[in-house]
Design a binder for these strands. Sequence first.
DNA 1: TAAAGCGTCCC
DNA 2: CGGGACGCTTT
Length: 502
Amino acid sequence: MREPGRAGSNCILSHDPLDDVMELINNDPVSTRSESDMVNFPTLPDHVPCGSLLETVTINQFPGEPAVSSTWEPCHNSAQPTLIIKEQPKQRGMRFRYQCEGRSAGSILGESSNDQNKTLPTIVLLNCEGIREVHVSVCLVWKDHPYRVHPHALVGKDCHDGICEIILHPNEGETEHCFSNLGIQCVRKKEIESSVKARLKLGIDPFNAGMWRHHEEVDLNVVRLCFQAWYILPATQRMTIGPVLSEPVYDKKSTNTSELKICRMNKEYGRCEGGEEVYILCDKVQKEDIKVMFFDNSWEACANFSQADVHRQIAIVLKTPPYHDLHIRDPARVQVCLQRITDGIRSDGVTFTYLPREGDSYGLQRKRPRMSSPLEDLVGPDPHRIESRRRQARPSYIEYITPDYGSLPGMDYSVGNVMDPQLSPDYSAPLEDTTSNLEIFHTWITPELEEQAAASHFEGIPPYTDEDATASLVGHSLSLTGEQERMYSDCSYTDDMRMGGC
DNA sequence: TAAAGCGTCCC
DNA sequence: CGGGACGCTTT
């Protein structure tokens, strides 16, 4: 998954400051440098301090983006030997491994890798046709400027001392290289200093950034791959290429960078007015850095919950936000996802269906019976008030769409937990069986609704057009009563809150 | 002080 | 390679 707001390519269109940067770099008087300088692969012109040059790059199209563009080849038009990243490393999904976890630390995959087509991080040398040998090295650096060497180590094929080194022969057509079996071995906190010192001692410091006084402040959950290359010209001059930075690679195990995932939800249907309690089981999250979004093509809203509603990082109890149109007449399918606040990363969506209000739905004009009565609290001991809470809870989907129990032809009351808990003293079904509910739904709804629901069910995309969405938004703005507005004032209805907190 | 979170390691 | 135990650290 790419970061939000990032285009598919790092190439910047039309004229851009990167051209200027390229010019600076291409004019780098590298041949005037001594051999000892070359050990550290300096690339930046002496008269341009590293920081200021990098900032120049940063302030254009991608605010907040890494200061050094890693793949600027499409904008490159000189004949200088160049190294580009053809396939970025996959940013998420690989776990950094401790040394004690064994020799193999897994393998960094390519960004476009998937189950069917496995790819690997790949570099290409350009304008190197006549060169016999190009030495390429890869090391790990900090995610952010000034890209100090990272204590973690690259391990695997062609790796030693935490870096990976290979030799390419462009004059034999060998200009491209896939890095297979590259793993990231993480160090323990107490090993940060010794690891960095060892790296520096070997002359590994692509940006001449040295060691940070507060080296323990390094972010151990993210690295960038840093590619550098050198070759010898016939006149025995040593020439350098790079350094070129990859996109950041995040540790899968760390909760502040890992992929977000909704494992299960106890409810997939709910009232369009919102306010219903839903439990989400998820992979570890950080309670102060997580929100749950409900959204469709044209609308999104935050679910309502507090940090106390996040249970041990793996479950969230939330209240559904109201749908933007309280007067829907058909069930409205939306998506629910987790979103990390700090980086905006979202999980895959899970479908949630908003149901029309009573009376608004086609064919539903009769009143539902009351769901509880005072007598029912006397049914038996309920020390934890589980049953009584259950009765107070908003009706589940099937309760909601059923206008009058027992009156619908073709309804199978024996399936799942659609029986009213009050009617069955032994009732103790756990989470709702949504499959059953869905089946029942399809036995009840009109053919048109069924068709729509079925279609969108398989596409996984809400069956909306822009016109629908616009109409709904307008409808919504006209539909709120004063009381409803007060009731929902803490929830968002529109895109306005897209990047904001809740 | 207890609970939650994190880092590390084991299976 | 993923799940999770568990002890140490932080809140």
